[in-house]
Computed example of a mutant assay.
Amino acid sequence: MTDTRPDDIAANLDAVRARIAHAARDCHRAADEIRLVAVSKTKPVALVAAALDAGQLDFGENYLQDALAKIDALAARQPVWHFIGDIQSNKTRDIAAHFAWAHAVDRFKIARRLSDQRPDGMAPLNICIQVNVDDEDSKSGIAADALPALAAQIAELPNLRLRGLMTIPTYSDDYDSQRRPFATLRELMEGLNADGHRLDTLSIGMSADLEAAIAEGATHVRVGTDIFGARG
């Protein structure tokens, strides 16, 4: 799917939605509990527009300048934009102004900037904290033992709404191995809720592992390749 065309998008979305529905049935969940975020990073406006034509509403972006061009071009159609990449301090103002969700917050400094820079009149920015469940030095995300303190700090910021947790685990093609880090994240969210938080979002699962993620309670799955094709 390296040369995906606009005419391919509806069928690709149908196939992904069928996978989600099948996975949900297998674990006795309702498919409408699971929100598909179509990862459109590096993809042209025409493909995003075709996805909107096919009823897709939520889109995930990693690269800010590329995303801002699409946001401007498609503003009249009112898609929901999710920033799913690492957030640097010099990007917070634009993310705060143009996105509904930020899925990869792992530092209080970044969260505070997003809150301070959220424009007046906009709904609070939905936040997921990224957790490094594998404790890999090369990966972004906060360590599990530091999570409660960060969650408490973010929950106090006035222009953010702390919704849940996100992770990108080490790749595996084994289903049981895929489930383990997602189960860890679910347990971390349950622990936060037991301490008084009201989190409702697990942003887990991509093209290769969405079934395992759904089995462990995913509410948002982030799928790019199976919708838009591989990055060129």
Rank of each mutant, 00 (worst) to 15 (best):
R222V: 04
S172V: 07
P181A: 01
P119W: 01
L192C: 10
D174W: 02
I154V: 15
S203C: 10
A11V: 15
G191Q: 14
A213G: 08
V223P: 01
E187K: 14
D174K: 07
D8F: 04
Q130H: 05
I95F: 08
A218E: 05
A230R: 13
I95V: 11
D86Q: 11
N12Y: 01
T92R: 09
H197T: 11
D174C: 07
K139H: 06
D3R: 10
E190T: 12
G232Q: 10
D209G: 00
V39N: 00
V80K: 03
K91Q: 06
F83P: 12
S207Q: 02
A15E: 08
L125R: 05
I84S: 05
N12E: 02
E216R: 01
M122C: 06
L57I: 08
S138D: 04
P169M: 03
P79I: 06
A208D: 06
I142P: 15
E136D: 14
M206Y: 06
G141Y: 11
S172A: 07
A50K: 02
R29I: 12
V221T: 02
A15T: 11
G205P: 05
G85N: 07
G85F: 04
N126P: 00
G141H: 11
A10F: 00
E190S: 11
T4R: 05
A111T: 15
F182D: 00
T2V: 13
D137L: 09
E216N: 02
L68C: 05
V39Q: 00
D209C: 00
R112P: 02
T167R: 07
W81L: 05
L147T: 14
A30P: 09
R35T: 10
C27L: 10
L36H: 06
V80S: 03
D176K: 09
E136T: 13
